[in-house]
Design a protein around this nucleic acid. Structure first.
Lengths: 208, 208
DNA sequence: ATGCGTAACCGACAAGTGTCGTTTATTAGA
DNA sequence: TCTAATAAACGACACTTGTCGGTTACGCAT
């Protein structure tokens, strides 16, 4: 049965899951996600197909774990966190989202990859972004306005949508550049929840 | 072969697609989406299974068409459009999104419907929202800031995310109420593209 | 080191998927 | 009205999916 991925004692379990994730990662560099069968993954991981189902309900769940894990790793490598002291602190989060998504769609430019791949990582990515943003928002207790959860969710989906649009662009500008375009779209969302103090940014108290 | 849904001459094609969409709509009132097979849909539509594949690549594509069509119908019934004259004009669009999503998830509260249903309508809904917003944004030609497409995409995903969060809430407030909470999060996004004139809203020229 | 617990392997199963080629019918235009 | 085009029906195909019960082998605590 699929157990939560974090903190697994048994080395056999860690080993198997690592193999499965690695196998999918490898296969996706050559094939489209929906062209990959569970059997393919199991074979590439030198693992029995039935064992696959001992860990993940289906290949989508494996993809989900892969994406969420990879994105978290990027954030961890860069020591990215969002403390909410200033909405502009979302910049590295957006940049990480750009880099991660650019990485994992450039892997297979040859064929139509969109249809099956894109709509699946969405929940994984937005959830990951949401989890980064939320801690910086939660201290703001109860207000008449939107809840911290609402703000975090809205912002994470907005970020994902913006990045996705950027990825669609044929000759897209570098990630660092587009972040400066996206950030101003996101900042007002994050500001909807009462914030502490922020050095830059014209504050924009209006609306709400 | 799956051809674009709009403007189909042949009445045979329209008839079959209508049958298939109606069948799925009916079946989803009783079953979860992932419990429904293509055979089930074809049977309920009194259509051969192979014929199904003449129109849709898989059952997800059918769901997509169903959702997009339904959402468009709501917008049409209410004569909703976004002309961009004022960002607050997005209010009825958001309200329509609330109503539509609330309608099509309340249909099957009995069992766990979430996992399979939610992540699938996303592209359909966000695309539908995007298509409504874009015309009101496009006249604003070229600028240094984000493109109209970027704004439309970001706003549509933000709206979808916000509504989705609202739906998750156990005892959620009425749609009219939550729209007033969501709207202020969306308005600044739409304002990122130079706008014509707007009676209300403190304009907020800042940022970018 | 020796067992207990349990992860991984294995073969098999019914069911669903997507794609053929062929045949029958309906539609729209000459 | 007749005919060419093409949509729908049909049966069959190789393949994938998810699940099962039973067996083997590994990890860890005693």
């Amino acid at each position: 049965m699929p157990v939560s991925d974090c903190e697994v004692k048994d080395p056999r379990i860690r080993r198997t899951r690592q193999l499965l994730q690695g196998a999918l990662r490898t296969l996706m560099q050559a094939k489209s996600f929906d062209e990959i069968s569970v059997q393919d993954i199991a074979d590439a991981a030198t693992v029995n197909r039935a064992t696959f189902y001992d860990h993940y309900t289906d290949k989508f769940a494996l993809l989900d774990a892969l994406v969420a894990g990879g994105f978290h790793q990027i954030l961890h490598e860069r020591s990215v966190s969002y403390d909410g002291s200033c909405p502009s602190a979302a910049r590295p989060v957006i940049l990480a989202a750009c880099d991660y998504l650019a990485l994992h769609q450039g892997g297979c430019t040859e064929v139509a990859h969109k249809s099956a791949f894109e709509p699946l990582i969405e929940a994984a990515i937005t959830n990951a972004i949401r989890r980064v943003l939320l801690p910086g928002l939660s201290p703001a207790a109860v207000t008449a306005g939107p809840s911290a959860e609402m703000v975090a969710t809205t912002a994470s989906w907005a970020i994902y949508g913006a990045v996705k649009e950027w990825l669609k662009t044929p000759q897209r500008p570098p990630a660092e550049e587009i972040v400066s375009v996206i950030l101003p779209l996101i900042v007002p969302i994050l500001q909807a929840v009462p914030l502490a103090k922020c050095p830059e940014a014209g504050v924009v108290p209006g609306v709400v």
